[in-house]
Design a binder for these strands. Structure first.
Ligand SMILES: [Zn+2]
Ligand SMILES: [Zn+2]
Ligand SMILES: [Zn+2]
Ligand SMILES: [Zn+2]
Lengths: 132, 132
DNA sequence: TTGCAATTGTTATGTTATTACATCAATTGC
DNA sequence: GCAATTGATGTAATAACATAACAATTGCAA
């Protein structure tokens, strides 16, 4: 998917996520944008919906939060499932993908005649720094 | 983990999940147990907390819902990550695991010196019947 | 019996997400 | 130009999911 020109609200939300050190909840984004005129959750959720669609932002299902994609401009997302390692102490998120994992999951899915739409892989734990 | 005798509330919640055809939200469980004296969400969440701890129930992060484990008595969960295929049309959930997927994820994790605590793999899409 | 830990009950509150409806701006076709 | 359409935005209200705080009860062991 090629990313169209972002609208004002989409840009604001995306900038907040890009500058953040870790994942942010929609309401945290809202708070950070109050000075820019944001007043309601929907302004954030609507922008996020588009940013997710464009693939420039990811939603972390297990922590109800959002991160900017770590592979901007890269089309790796079209080649497979994205996985995340999420540090529960410092919030650091590492995005990666592994073709073999994709292959195994997709071959299981084919065996079941299941038609996958969206796959989530999230590893919660402690990053190297926090585990020490 | 060996499962201790369930308390009254834990049994009620577990029975509802076992008899259900698909995953249920905590509030849906609450509604189904009003006739048995349940009045507040915490009664459900507290029971679920224990059932998750005992490994007899799983939480589906991507849909904020809970299912009874499909492998009762089986200790397969101690051998690896559990994955789920979730039909977004009929709610059917299939639980499986794949050692090769575990191995690839855990070897990536080791390379990063990341210490995993809990891993989520959820494939949302359409089951064979619903995709037809 | 007394003390302790686990479970339960109850109320209130916090957090995440969507519905419904109104308004505004850019584009299209006449 | 000007209505019609479409996409984006603003606002209020509500729904859905989850936890905090505190009281009461139960079961059991010292
Ligand atoms: Zn990405
Ligand atoms: Zn960390
Ligand atoms: Zn299971
Ligand atoms: Zn189905």
């Amino acid at each position: 998917m090629t990313t169209p020109q972002l609208t004002k609200n989409q840009s604001l939300v995306f900038d907040v996520l890009e500058k953040a050190e870790g994942p942010l909840s929609a309401y945290t984004i809202l708070d950070k944008l109050r000075d820019h005129g944001f007043r309601a959750p929907l302004q954030v959720y609507r922008a996020l919906e588009k940013l997710l669609e464009y693939g420039v932002v990811h939603r972390l299902e297990s922590i109800n939060s959002f991160v900017a994609c770590a592979h901007p401009g890269d089309d790796c997302h079209s080649h497979g499932i994205v996985a995340f390692a999420i540090c529960e102490s410092c919030g650091q998120v590492t995005e990666f993908h592994d073709h073999e994992v994709d292959h195994r999951l997709m071959s299981w899915v084919r065996g079941q005649k299941f038609k996958p739409e969206k796959t989530t892989i999230e590893i919660r734990g402690l990053c190297e720094a926090c585990a020490a």
